[in-house]
Amino acid sequence: MAYEVNGKTIEADEEGFLVNINDWNEELAGLVAKDEGIDMSPEHWEVVNFLREYYAEYQIAPAVRVLTKAIAKKMGPDKGNNKYLYELFPYGPGKQACKIAGLPKPTGCV
């Protein structure tokens, strides 16, 4: 599988996760989100950017439970809960948000 952005082909695995996370950019994120049926809002970007920062620091994509706790710590309990995150990313905040953020599939995701 591959994505086309500005005439450039960006490789992804069979599930749509980027092969090389350095290929990521916001345009590509928008394209992946569209494929996932998500219309990116500032709230979506907030989670995507949080994930990218988390990955840069820890070199791992967090599982949902870890993601929820980390977001609650940084952005407060209104955003750091499953209900809020699943409203943004109905197919799973860990898996779907990581895919849009250009990160590898989180460990423990099916």
Rank of each mutant, 00 (worst) to 15 (best):
D13H: 06
N49D: 12
F89N: 03
N25H: 02
V48Q: 11
G94Y: 10
E14H: 11
V110H: 13
Y86Q: 13
K95D: 08
V19S: 05
E87C: 01
Y86A: 01
P90H: 05
L28M: 10
V48A: 09
A12F: 10
G7K: 11
Q96G: 07
A33C: 04
S41V: 03
Q96A: 11
T68S: 12
A72S: 14
V110Q: 07
L51T: 12
G7E: 10
G7R: 13
C98W: 06
N25F: 02
L31H: 14
P90G: 08
P106E: 04
G80W: 04
Q96P: 01
C98H: 10
P90I: 04
W24S: 07
Q96T: 15
W45L: 12
M1F: 07
E53H: 06
P90V: 00
Y3E: 00
G94H: 08
W24N: 04
N49T: 03
M75K: 13
T68M: 15
E27K: 15
K73S: 13
V47N: 09
P106L: 01
G94M: 04
E4A: 10
I100P: 11
G16Q: 08
P90Q: 08
K69S: 14
F50A: 06
E46N: 12
P62K: 12
E27R: 11
M1E: 11
K69H: 14
P104K: 10
G16K: 07
E14G: 04
G92I: 01
G80Y: 02
V5R: 03
N81V: 00
E15P: 00
E11H: 12
H44C: 04
V5L: 00
A2V: 08
Y55G: 00
G76S: 06
G108I: 00
N20R: 14
Y3K: 01
G80A: 01
P106T: 09
L85F: 02
K99F: 05
A56Q: 15
G76R: 06
E36F: 04
A29R: 07
E4G: 03
K74C: 00
F50L: 03
K74P: 01
D39F: 14
E87N: 12
N22M: 08
G94T: 08
M1H: 11
T107N: 11
K95S: 14
N82Q: 12
N81C: 06
K69L: 12
V66S: 12
G7T: 05
V64N: 08
L31R: 15
L18A: 09
A72P: 03
T9W: 11
A61P: 09
Y91L: 07
P104V: 06
G76Q: 02
V48H: 10
N6W: 08
M1Y: 12
V32N: 04
N49G: 03
I21Y: 10
L85Y: 04
A70N: 08
M40K: 13
L51E: 09
V66W: 05
C98A: 15
K95Y: 09
W24Q: 09
V47F: 06
